[in-house]
Design a protein around this nucleic acid. Sequence first.
DNA 1: ATGGTTGCTTAGCAA
Length: 268
Amino acid sequence: MKIMSWNVNSVRVRHDRLLALLDRHAPDVLCLQELKTEDKGFPFEAVRAAGYHAVTLGQKTYNGVALLSRTEPAEVLRGLDDGVEDPQARLISARYGDTRVVCVYVPNGGEMGSEKWAYKQAWYARLIAWLSRNASSRDALALCGDFNVSFDDRDLKDPAAWVDGVLYHPDARALLKGVVDWGLVDTFRQHQSEGGHYSWWDYRAGAWQKNDGLRIDFILATQALAARCTAAGIDIAERKPPKKSPDGKDDNPSDHAPIWAEFGDAAG
DNA sequence: ATGGTTGCTTAGCAA
């Protein structure tokens, strides 16, 4: 089973790239974040024609998440569903066979001390509560998406430049640790211990050209699932800006690269 | 350089 996750940064602008990604990787499940459209703007027909089921939690302008899959999803859950008044579409989950997949777009957090930072802190706490309500760390579960936090110095080109910000402040790292401590393993680090592997490069200031990136997208697995993880990686080629085409038609990449993890079949 | 770029929605916000 190959699980992928991609912050697509507008599913409408990335329509052709999405179909190409499905063709290139043939994932069993693809988690998408930042659809930036309501459900009616999602390309259901094209995805179905490519051989995928799709369940979505869209939102106008911002956020929005989806799960694409070869097999039919079961037990689809939308939103944090905790009684908190919150219009932001940031979580969708479904079960595929024995494995529950959770797709999240964690809030960025703006600046430390801001209202957005408070929302990010609260959202992490609500996510852990959601996990405890809807799953067990003994189950096969993959929590995938854009977590807007890096784990450690290996995950950033320039840790000093980010340590006071919402993506890498010690208080931000503590939020991510809280999720991992619920009972999850970073599948990428099961297979790669070196630094210099990133999943997001700011569009601004030539970050891609300087490889000034951060690894903030993860596929986190419970021990039951992580034990079957045979490989994991990042498709950085998808992030590479293409040569300007002669007709001037934009074919920009998302600012995030897709990430993936492969899992063997469950024993017995 | 309080900068830079992209997307949604149309001048300002979010990332």
